[in-house]
Design a protein around this nucleic acid. Structure first.
Lengths: 209, 209
DNA sequence: AATTTTTTTAATCATTTGATTAACCAAATA
DNA sequence: TATTTGGTTAATCAAATGATTAAAAAAATT
């Protein structure tokens, strides 16, 4: 009666349908505001199938959350651990790639920071971002550049906050920025597109002040 | 039977008790996850009183939301419209004041960016941030400085995104930053405290690149 | 003090919502 | 083809939750 085997046979179809529907709805509304019926409707399946495949709303949510995290952070580290690029190149590439990612999935940052509050420990351990960050090629290059006096002695914490803040915050506060500046979606995107080039320049000037 | 008169008599006591409890709970959990029973318990009152004074959860929420907005943005404009300070001084003062505000009420930014998605238009009109921003002394000084060539010709949109991003994002992503950098609350606050000084310096260097 | 009005409470209602069940269907297997 | 296994559905359940009600208590008014 119960589907215990890992991704067996062809029921992957409906199972995957539910999961990607859940992804959409959870990202959009968060855990509390998302109803299992919303997800079922989005997936075009009977409500009972959600529980049949995933046992509970919470279990489904945890899966979506974990996968979202992994997707989101793995895309970061692919750039950060490239051994063939300089620090400056990594910053440029990362800014560009990250903004493209945010164009594709603009709700993810808000989703992550929201649901991390109710979770924190358990989830973070599974991914172990801490080590991934500090063992990355990027951090090594960053520290080397400081030691060689090429950039200012600014703690990596500040650098990370700045980089993330400049990149992500406009997406998080998009409705606010649009309203305040009277921008259409197209105009907003154009402003963000400009930031692909600008943020690396700004970061460089910050690091050499 | 119904309390129609505006803030009459002394029922301000319980009415205010409910409202500030609602503020706490809504800020912490958002509209969907907050239960009226949570609010009643937080306020130490009978559940029915919530509906007696505020008709519905939604009406109560709208009041909290509006007041939160007004508080939050009024504290911005008090600095922005001071005619006795220079552009540079305003930036310094604003960074400092705003970070203090965020220390006191760290959940507000996330609350605002979350709940604004379901509201935007109606609410923004009531406050009319758009005009408040563009008629502010700060923007006038900003544009003047550009015209005089004292700072780079950077659109105010970018400047605002940068300023807000550098200030607010660390609070929004606090659990993430704490985890990644292995910081205690005290250590995190110390890093933020440093940013009071640093952000104005960074902004200046960005604007003169 | 008596009466009216306002505030508070416990009990209850109605709806929403996550989850289950039993019957039915479909596909694989024998 | 018959049988078993897995997938799907409609109906239903139970708990949670926003809201109401009627009675009691407290406060204000006469």
């Amino acid at each position: 009666m119960k589907p215990e085997k890992e991704s067996s046979e062809k029921n992957i179809s409906t199972e995957e349908k539910i999961k990607s529907a859940a992804r959409i709805v959870f990202h959009q509304k968060g855990f509390a505001a998302a109803r299992t019926r919303d997800i079922a409707e989005e997936a075009g399946i009977n409500l009972a199938l959600l529980n049949y495949y995933f046992r509970s709303k919470e279990k489904l949510f945890n899966i979506v959350m974990l996968e979202t995290f992994q997707d989101f952070f793995s895309s970061i580290f692919s750039v950060f651990n490239d051994v063939d690029t300089s620090l400056e190149e990594k910053i440029e590439k990362f800014a560009s790639n990250y903004i493209d990612l945010l164009f594709r999935e603009p709700e993810i940052p808000l989703f992550i920071v929201n649901e991390i509050r109710n979770n924190v420990g358990e989830l973070m351990d599974k991914i172990n971002i801490r080590n991934s960050v500090f063992n990355s090629e990027f951090v090594k290059q960053y520290n080397k550049a400081i030691k060689e006096g090429r950039i200012r002695n600014l703690s990596f914490q500040h650098f990370m906050m700045n980089f993330m803040g400049l990149l992500i915050f406009p997406f998080i506060a998009k409705p606010l920025f649009k309203e305040i500046n009277g921008l259409s979606d197209v105009q907003f995107n154009k402003v963000i597109e400009e930031r692909k080039q600008l943020i690396p320049v700004w970061l460089k000037s910050i690091m050499t002040v």
